[in-house]
Amino acid sequence: MQITIYHYLAVSTILFVLGIYALISRKNAILILMGIELILNACNINLIAFSKYGGLGIDGQVIAIFVIILAVAEAAIGLAIIINIYNNFSTVNVDEVNSLKE
């Protein structure tokens, strides 16, 4: 079976939808952060696929590298925030962290 750009896109779409689903449905902050990672990775797959099959060339791979680096930085900061939230609220459930409400 010939692997075409549609396969890549299908995988990345599945990943993206799963990421979104995790983002929307999970209450645990860590799981939400994981959902964001999934979305970013779906995006990376797309970039790589366009790099190979589309007209993006090497640029797509460069941007993918950048995205990975950003994802790392984002994960580091996000986890740091989550640890602080846990320290303050003794929970990582985002619904319960609502002291700014009202």
Partner: peptide, 12 residues
Amino acid sequence: TGKIQTYIALLI
């Protein structure tokens, strides 16, 4: 609601 997840769901 102030809940980001709801917003995102709506957004999508």
